[in-house]
Every structure is written in structure tokens, then in C-alpha cells.
Write a protein that binds this DNA or RNA. Structure first.
Length: 306
RNA sequence: GGGAGUGCGCCGGAGUAGGAGAGCCGGGCCAGACUGUAAAUCUGGUGUCUUUGACUGAAUAGGUUCGAGUCCUAUCACUCCCA
């Protein structure tokens, strides 16, 4: 497909680390351009998670249509794969009535799946994954490495052999489908029928870290602890393997006081933000813009619309 | 005022019967990886320099010794006990 065949549809992506100000900026941009917002956040998808994941407020959600926020539940097996299907569906629908759609959120992999696409491959049922997770816990990482080396020597060569999550994924896939995992990694990127403008918001490190520290205090003041208590029975679900909730569950368990937990939550949030910044620096072609420079962003979008 | 103890790299811990170490464990921080758990998971670095190596370093200043982080003296800081 050549450039002239691509319809004049533009997906504006607002990325950047947590607490940089994506949510409110995306809302004002969407209002400015009369558009709607699709979220790309692996934790805001759950209806049970609110305060601690920085979900937009009711007021914000009412001010502009949002998609993929709180549309699933923590007991589902939601993943990057399910997200990709859901998001592409919604984006296509939105482009039927709009020329511009905003995609915003902090989950780099989810955004990458939209921009570059995933290779098509069969689904692996959750219980297969759980089975191999159990094997890993009981027998260790070597058990997985042995299988992988036998069944998919190609992938064995390239995989990070210290990373249990990746190994569990690969072995689960291979044992379920009977096919080598690597045979599905064609690396062919999907051709989208819309243009993409990826903007990564950034702030000086000191400023961002100060905002994070402040935001954690606000979340606690807004009742984060109470939210954590209602979710405590679900603490082993993967949706609850989330910055802050882990620490608050320790408070409920009596391992920490709330006063001790707060600096720890601020710390793990800063570490999370750092990992995100690494992603935006090194994954994909992002235009880096100061988070306060909305004028520049508007000009970039207008230019992108052609 | 008297007594006891402890002092090393961003922090905590372990260890050291004179042959050492820019060393160990954990944390922090910095940097990195990333195609279905991704707020997850994983990796590396963290005295200085001209970096396959070299140099400086164990509170500070001296001393003993072939050799001192380790022993001695003084000083400083902190902790505890007694007044």
C-alpha cells in the first residue's frame, strides 16, 4: 500500500511515564479536536481498580468518551492479545465517524501491538499457562529450559534464559500447540489503514519524581487504602500485581504501617516510571515533547492531519 | 566528668586470630532488554583514570612491622552504661 492509498485517518498516541499528565492532556486535546479517547493502560482496563491506577475521574470520563477503561474484570485473563483485538476493533469503528482518534496510556507493549502488530498465533488457554507456572515454581527454571532446548532450539538461542515469564509463555505455547514458538515469529509488521503520530510526553526527572510523590499522597487521601481492603481477597490475581497495591496488602497483613508503605509506594512508582522512560527512549520512533507544551502538540497533530 | 563499644565506597548487613579488596550479600540509584502476565518479568553497572590494565582507599594524624582495614598512641564522631 502506498502513501496515497492510506485514507486521511490519524491515530494520535499520547505516551509517556506515569504521572506525567497524559490523562488530562489527552482529554483537552480530544475536546479540541472533537475526538474520542482509547486507553492503552494494562491496569485501567479493570473495573475494580480505580484510585491506585490513576483511572480518569467520573467527571473526566463524562467529559469525553473513553474506551477500554474499566471494561473488564480482574478475574478475567486479560492480556496484550485481548487488548489488541479490542482496541483495533474500537479504533476501526471510531474512524468510521472521525478523522482523528487519540490513544493514550502508559503500557508500551499495548501501544506497540497497535502500531506494529503482533504475529498471528493460536491462543493458549489460561490453565495451560498456570500448569507451566506451577512446574516452574516446583522444579525451577531448568525444567523449562530443557523443554525449550529440545522443542524449539531456534527460540532457545535468542530467549532471555533467566526470565521465567517469557519461558513459561514459550513452553506453554509449544506444549499446547505442538509447534515451535519461533515459527510464528515472522516479525512482519502489520500494515495499518491509518496514519500514526506517536508523541511521548516528558518532564525533567526531578519534576516527574516530585509529581509521583505528590500523586501517591493524593491517592491515599482519596481512599486508596479502603479500595485495597476490598481487593485484598483477590490479591493473588495478576491484575493485582500492581505498584502500590502490593505494598498496601502488606499493610493489611501487618508487615508494614501505612506510614512505612507510602515512601515504598512512591519508590516503586518512580522505578516503574523509569522503566517506561527506557521504553519510550528505545522502543519505536517517538516524538518527545515536554508535557507542558500543548501548543506544540496541537501543531504536530494539525501537521499530521495534512 | 568516668567507663565500654563502634567507625570503609550512596545505605544496611556479614566478615576480618597482621599476608588486604576497590571484595561478598541485600537495598537504593543509574543504564538496558521486551511479540499475549508488561504497573509484570529479566539483565548489567555503581572510587578515579589514559579501562585486556593502572592508581588511590578502611574516621583523622602519627607509630610498630618485611607487610596494617586488622596492633599501639593521640584526636574526632556516634552509640550505650555510670554520674
Amino acid at each position: 500500500m502506498s502513501d496515497k492509498d492510506i485514507p486521511n485517518k490519524l491515530l494520535v498516541i499520547i505516551g509517556g511515564p506515569t504521572a506525567v499528565g497524559k490523562t488530562s492532556l489527552a482529554i483537552s486535546l480530544a475536546q479540541h479536536f472533537g475526538a474520542e479517547i482509547v486507553s492503552a493502560d494494562s491496569r485501567q482496563v479493570y473495573k475494580e481498580l480505580n484510585i491506585g491506577v490513576g483511572k480518569p475521574s467520573h467527571e473526566q470520563l463524562d467529559s469525553i468518551p473513553h474506551h477500554l477503561v474499566g471494561h473488564t474484570t480482574i478475574s478475567s485473563h486479560y492480556s496484550a492479545g485481548s487488548y489488541t483485538r479490542d482496541a483495533l476493533d474500537i479504533i476501526d469503528t471510531l474512524f468510521q465517524k472521525h478523522d482523528i482518534v487519540f490513544l493514550t496510556g502508559g503500557t508500551g507493549l499495548y501501544i506497540k501491538a497497535i502500531t506494529d502488530g503482533f504475529d498471528q498465533m493460536p491462543e493458549v488457554p489460561a490453565d495451560v499457562n498456570e500448569y507451566w507456572t506451577q512446574i516452574w515454581k516446583e522444579k525451577g527454571i531448568n525444567e523449562l529450559l530443557i523443554i525449550l532446548e529440545q522443542k524449539d532450539p531456534e527460540y532457545f538461542k535468542t530467549i532471555d534464559r533467566a526470565n521465567p515469564m517469557r519461558l513459561i509463555r514459550a513452553v506453554s505455547f509449544i506444549m499446547h500447540t505442538g509447534l515451535p514458538f519461533s515459527s510464528f515469529h515472522t516479525g512482519q509488521s502489520s500494515q495499518r489503514t491509518f496514519k500514526i503520530l506517536p508523541i511521548a510526553l516528558e518532564l525533567p526527572r526531578d519534576e516527574l519524581y516530585a509529581r509521583i510523590n505528590q500523586r501517591v499522597l493524593h491517592m491515599v487521601a482519596d481512599g486508596w487504602m479502603e479500595e485495597a481492603m476490598t481487593l485484598y481477597p483477590s490479591r493473588h490475581l495478576k491484575a493485582l500485581q500492581t505498584v502500590g497495591y502490593k505494598e498496601l496488602f502488606d499493610v493489611i497483613d501487618g508487615k508494614l504501617s501505612l506510614e512505612e508503605a507510602i515512601p515504598l509506594i512512591q519508590q516503586s512508582t518512580r522505578r516503574y516510571a523509569k522503566r517506561q522512560m527506557t521504553w519510550y527512549r528505545n522502543q519505536g520512533e517517538w516524538t518527545h515533547v515536554n508535557a507542558n507544551d500543548s501548543d506544540l502538540i496541537i501543531r504536530l497533530i494539525e501537521h499530521g492531519m495534512g
